[in-house]
Write a protein that binds this DNA or RNA. Structure first.
Length: 764
DNA sequence: CTGATGGGCCTTTTT
DNA sequence: GGCCCATCAG
């Protein structure tokens, strides 16, 4: 028997006005005592172009805003202006941002701008990411969907679990040949293009598999009462397309739509923006095609062009004055981005002069030297009181690069903030605990149930799970529902004594929690789960890693206590949609380590960009596609333009990648910056290619002669009859021969045996 | 049924 | 260098 619970949450959602978001219990700072007058402020401190944008007439507006040109400022002022000068009620405005953090900041800025004039604050103002806004719409309109109002939001790990089942069980294919991740990537791009399984016409054989997998995957999601990230967008668009009455309701409730980071919208998001803002077409988009870095996620900066075509009366405003960086940093960034074809040329300028000392270029020996250099420079500047640590950032292309940097910071005893890498909400222990909450909330979410069914171990193994699943399916219910039935009627089902008591025990716990959640706050519920499962003790193995896991769970408990009076579904949805940047704390005065992607929209006094090497930035996976290469260049541009006063550009001579040493050539992007804008730090050289390595030849460790005398030394120039000229990287005795590693000018890295290679040493 | 161990893979970026 | 998976002994 299923207990009837969960109505309260649903009702409180339905009772809200159509657009009203849930307001968190966490106090949000409303700067009421701003002292300034009311009304005049909105246009103060704006340049002509910014003012033009803020006060633009109704209808579609596109603001093309270069980095540091006051994009956020224009967006918030526009919203405030609409509310105050045009008298629009906040609840009739929809504003979309790229991250939750940006949304939070925008809200508090508007509130402080408008001050007391807004008695009740921004009540009903719809402000959030596309995903968050869509999640809310879908929950409210679930009757038109195949899922309930309690639907779970699956992240990539959950998606993977589902797709693995699809490939292995439903399609009976080899996971090695048909990687779930690859298929998911295809499915994701199909969803971003709004292509449902029925509309997909596979051409090649592989797509035939994708098509079948896509269909089964969707079926499994529905069976789990779940949607994935891409569904949030696609299903909302489909909902609006197939139910004109629903769309009309939202359109009537919406007078104005504002969109930030417009260059990073995908087809689904673009469709959504068009639908919502129609028929009034009061649409205000802000973006910069040069900062479009999410192509791989379906984003298409050409939406900016589409906007021009779709709205012939589009007002376009260019913001070209930069208020962030020095002239030197701006010139160097421009030298890099100017090489991209097909872009609107911009004349970015600043009134802040600069010198060539603003940009330092450094060739490190390897990633450890690189990290040490960063730490030394940082510590030096902080000691001289030239900069606050919190105003410094170290940026890299891939998360894997953070490790060496972290090590150096730890060894130097310097604090740092790390964005991404092992994302808080991606950690195993956090996912475990959230899976408990998700199962309580929605027992049909089988992915979550399977995650916790034997975590911590409670003697429910593979065999028992299979028995549960087959019994559930014979009864026509989900495994979660089967567990609850077993709790109510421990005699049901075909289970042996041990398995039966284990399953019924878990079912009873679930059942009890499901009833408790109605009457106790979220934090208490979580505490109860931790206590009754012994989850913390499960990780208490005396190791450092175990303690860290416990700390993380306790941290989650703190978060849950902040959401005390928030209904469970709201909490789960919010938690599923938080990004790393959202959690970036402003409090700690420590340097920030983050990927270039995560750096978008942020600014720092001092920026270190590391790993500026061919294969890393630009990434090797982008080499053969000009479009992707253009995106790598934009990534470089985004990184450089984050810096206010000082920019370090760093690359290494050699780097360990995949556990072995690799010799890298410095990034082509560096060579696009005129020397006159740069200062060379020790070790840096201009000019491309392997020649720079001679600098390090002497620094490289001398091979220790073991028994036999060696012929070649690292750093030595050699010539090979077939490969031509090169430089020895390493040479060591191997058996009774000598193994020489050489990087050749023409053909790159080769490993050769001295006795066969017939190489000649060259004199310098 | 669990935990330890070793081999074969990779690794871009994230809401 | 690390993660996931399969395998095996208790």
């Amino acid at each position: 028997m299923l207990p009837v619970v969960g109505q309260a949450g649903a009702l409180s959602i339905l009772a809200q006005p159509i657009w009203e978001p849930h307001r968190r219990a966490v106090p949000c700072c409303v700067a009421v005592k701003d002292g300034k007058g009311i009304g005049v402020d909105i246009l103060s401190d704006l340049n002509a172009a910014q003012r033009q944008a803020v006060t633009a007439p109704d209808g579609p507006v596109l603001v093309l805003a270069g980095p540091g040109s006051g994009k956020t400022r224009v967006l918030t002022r526009r919203a405030a202006w609409l509310i105050q000068e045009r008298g629009l009620p906040p609840r009739r405005i929809v504003a979309v941002t790229f991250t939750n953090k940006a949304a939070r900041e925008m809200r508090s800025r508007i509130e402080s701008l408008l001050g007391e004039v807004l008695g009740e604050g921004l009540r009903g103002f719809t402000l959030g990411t596309f995903h968050a806004i869509c999640a809310r719409i879908l929950r409210r309109e679930h009757t038109h969907l195949p899922v309930s109002a309690n639907y779970a939001i699956y992240d990539s790990a959950d998606q993977r679990a589902v797709m693995k089942e699809v490939v292995a069980v439903d399609l009976n294919l080899d996971e090695k040949r048909y990687s779930p991740d690859k298929i998911l990537a295809r499915v994701s791009s199909l969803k971003n293009e709004l292509i449902v399984p029925d509309d997909f016409r596979p051409g090649a054989y592989y797509d035939e598999i994708v098509s079948r997998a896509y269909r089964r995957y969707q079926e499994r999601l529905v069976a789990n009462d779940a949607l994935d990230f891409d569904d949030l967008l696609m299903q909302t668009v489909l909902l609006f397309r197939d139910h004109p009455d629903v769309l009309a309701r939202y359109q009537h409730a919406t007078d104005y739509v504002l969109v930030d980071e417009f260059q990073d919208t995908n087809s689904a998001q673009y469709a959504l923006v068009r639908m919502l803002s129609s028929p009034r077409n009061n649409l205000f988009c802000v973006g910069d095609e040069d900062q479009s870095i999410y192509r791989w996620r379906g984003a298409d900066y050409r939406n900016i062009l589409r906007l021009r075509n779709d709205y012939p009366d589009l007002t376009i405003i260019l913001l070209e004055q930069n208020y962030r960086s020095t002239q030197t940093i701006l010139d160097a960034s421009r030298a890099v981005i100017d090489k991209n074809p097909q872009r609107t040329p911009k004349r970015l300028f600043t009134e802040t002069p600069g010198t060539s000392a603003d940009i330092t270029i450094y060739e490190a020996f390897d990633e450890h030297d690189e990290a040490q250099f960063v730490v030394d420079q940082l510590a030096g500047m902080v000691a001289q009181q030239e900069v606050e640590p919190g105003q410094c950032a170290i940026m890299y292309r891939t998360n894997a690069q953070s490790r060496a940097l972290e090590d150096a910071f730890i060894r130097a005893g310097l604090p740092y903030k790390l964005v991404g890498a092992t994302r808080f909400y991606g950690r195993r222990e956090i996912k475990d605990v959230l899976a408990y909450l998700r199962t309580i909330h929605n027992p049909d979410d089988t992915v979550s149930l399977l995650r916790i069914i034997n975590t911590p171990p409670r003697a429910i193994g593979e065999k028992t799970i299979q028995a549960l699943e087959s019994w559930a399916s014979s009864e026509g219910i989900t495994p979660g529902a089967a567990l609850l039935r077993l709790a109510a009627d421990p005699g049901a089902g075909p289970f042996s004594g041990k398995a039966r008591s284990a399953l019924a025990g878990l079912g009873a716990l679930l059942d009890a929690w499901r009833q408790m959640r109605e009457v106790i706050p979220l934090g208490d519920l979580l505490k109860l789960i931790l206590d009754e499962t012994g989850y913390l003790n499960y990780h208490n193995d005396g190791t450092e890693a175990g303690q860290e896991r416990i700390d993380n769970v306790l941290e989650l408990l703190n978060v849950a206590r902040e959401y005390e009076d928030v209904p469970l579904p709201e909490f789960l949805a919010e938690v599923a949609l938080v990004s790393d940047v959202d959690n970036l704390s402003e409090e700690a005065n420590a340097a920030t380590l983050l990927t270039l992607h995560a750096a978008k929209g942020l600014e720092f006094d001092v920026v270190f960009m590391v790993g500026l090497e061919e294969g890393i930035l630009p990434h090797s996976r982008s080499q053969d596609d000009p479009e992707q290469m253009a995106e790598e260049r934009r990534l470089m541009y985004v990184g450089m333009t984050r810096a206010r006063r000082k920019l370090y550009l760093i690359y290494t001579f050699q780097r360990s990648q995949w556990g072995e040493s690799v010799l890298n050539i410095r990034s082509r992007f560096l060579d696009d910056i005129p020397d006159s804008l740069l200062t060379m730090a020790r070790g840096a050289t201009t000019g491309v290619g392997y020649r720079q390595m001679t600098t390090w030849g002497l620094k490289a460790e001398e091979p220790r002669p073991v028994g036999k005398q060696i012929q070649f030394r690292s750093g030595q120039r050699v010539v090979h009859p077939r490969f031509g000229e090169g430089i020895v990287v390493e040479s060591r005795v191997s058996g009774d021969d000598e193994e020489v590693t050489v990087v050749f000018e023409a053909s790159g890295l080769k490993r050769l045996m001295a006795s066969f290679a017939n190489m000649q040493a060259l004199d310098e």
